[in-house]
Simulated scan of single mutants.
Amino acid sequence: MTKAEKRVLILTSVFVTIALNIHRLFVLLPGEGRKIGLPWVFNAPELTYQVFFHFGFCMFFGYLNLKWLNWNTDMNKKRRVKNLLSNTIFFLLLMGFASTTQYFLFENVLNIRLFLLGYFFRLITSLGLISILVKIMLLNRTQKRKEQENEQLKIAYFNAEIKNLRAQINPHFLFNALSSLSALVRENPSKAQDYITHLSKVFRYSLSNHHEQLIGLDKELELLDSNIQLLKMRFEDALEIHIEVPKTHGIQLPHMSLQPLLENAVKHNFVSKEIPLRIDIFQENGALHFKNTLNEAVYKEPSTGIGLLNLNERYNILMGKSIEIEKTNTHFTVKLPLN
Rank of each mutant, 00 (worst) to 15 (best):
L309E: 12
L117D: 07
K77F: 14
N285K: 14
Q193P: 03
G286A: 08
E187C: 04
N150E: 13
M75A: 15
K201R: 12
F158S: 11
H172N: 04
E240Y: 01
V41L: 11
E212R: 11
R278F: 08
E240M: 04
A167Y: 04
N188V: 01
I325V: 14
V266M: 02
K267V: 05
Y315M: 05
T88Y: 06
L207S: 10
F60T: 08
R141E: 14
K77S: 11
L181T: 03
H172C: 00
D237E: 10
V27C: 15
T304A: 02
L11K: 11
L11Y: 10
R7F: 11
L123Q: 13
L116H: 09
K144Q: 15
D237Q: 06
F282H: 04
L9E: 02
L28P: 03
N269Y: 04
N21M: 03
K291T: 14
L318V: 11
S99F: 03
G286D: 09
F270L: 05
E274F: 03
T293R: 00
F106Q: 06
Q259A: 09
K273M: 05
E236W: 01
E151N: 12
P260E: 00
I243V: 08
L20H: 06
I325M: 06
K267P: 02
N188I: 01
G62T: 07
K78V: 15
E244Y: 00
V298W: 09
V81Y: 14
Q229L: 14
F60K: 05
T328L: 00
T12R: 12
L38I: 11
N83E: 11
